[in-house]
């Protein structure tokens, strides 16, 4: 298992769990959850510095960019232009070009706008960004995004923050089967079994935030997610047994008294 690493944009990672850094009680809890999850990549947002309260704690002082690969996102962006502007700033703040692109369509569903997402991906890749892309679970758009040069395809399992689990396992499997770049389920995971299901479908990884941050005990849930991703991956590699219509006894029938 130790050599079961995965590669995104030429960088090797051994943890297949990427976690968000939003919605935690505070950055200290966030840091403890990140530690417990074993994640090597964390997503981060880009926002204005608070000029009136400069003593506000900063994420970088708790979740160190030296320890974790920061994956800047474009959460809250509804046009390609907004997303590109945000990521140019992120590249300057962080000094690296691996990013998570998401271009949303409406506030209620936070469903990605795929036409705008594809347009943004093409522009960002032209500017030298390595784009991990949040997308719908549509295999056709997933292929278009891969052809455009995205370094990871990240279909939603269910709407962002909903915790509804993997709603369309068939589409996730279709996307996994056709992709030559890593596929990660991003959004919708509610509990450990959801993460395991994503991995059993053959995904290369899982990205989640709310499932940990809004658990009653986030640190414990972070640990659960770590194990779930490993378990799901192992089960996928092991190859599950076939499904049968009827019972098949596990104890020998011969020698019954």
């Amino acid at each position: 298992m130790t050599d079961d690493t995965f590669e995104i944009a030429g960088r090797k990672f051994s943890s297949r769990l990427i976690i968000g850094t939003g919605k935690y009680k505070d950055y200290a809890e966030n840091a403890a959850a990140a530690e417990a999850s074993g994640a090597e990549i964390v997503t981060v947002a880009v926002r204005r510095v608070n000029l009136t309260d400069r003593d506000k704690p900063m994420l970088v002082d708790y979740v160190s960019p030296e320890k974790y690969t920061y994956l800047p996102n474009t959460a809250g962006c509804f046009t390609a232009e907004d997303a590109i502007r945000t990521l140019r700033l992120a590249r300057e703040a962080g000094g690296w070009d691996l990013v998570k692109l998401e271009v949303l369509s409406d506030q209620k569903t936070l469903y990605p706008d795929m036409a705008e997402t594809l347009r943004a991906a093409e522009l960002l890749i032209k500017e030298g960004f390595q784009v991990m892309v949040y997308c719908t679970d549509d295999p056709v758009y997933a292929r278009k995004l891969e052809e455009a040069g995205c370094c990871a395809i990240m279909p939603l399992g269910a709407p962002i923050g909903s915790g509804l689990g993997i709603q369309n396992p068939v589409n996730i499997r279709l996307i996994v089967e056709q992709a030559k770049v890593p596929v990660l389920v991003d959004a919708g995971v509610g509990t450990a079994s959801d993460a395991a299901i994503a991995m059993e479908l053959g995904c290369d990884g899982v990205l989640l935030n709310t499932a940990i941050a809004e658990a009653k005990d986030p640190i414990r849930m972070a640990r659960a997610m770590k194990h779930a991703v490993i378990a799901g991956r192992e089960a996928y590699l092991a190859g599950r047994m076939g499904r049968k219509k009827y019972a098949d006894p596990s104890s020998p029938l011969a020698g019954l008294i």
Partner: peptide, 10 residues
């Protein structure tokens, strides 16, 4: 001018 930083996000 816009001055930005990384904050927690998903």
């Amino acid at each position: 001018l816009e001055i930005v930083q990384f904050v927690g996000g998903g």
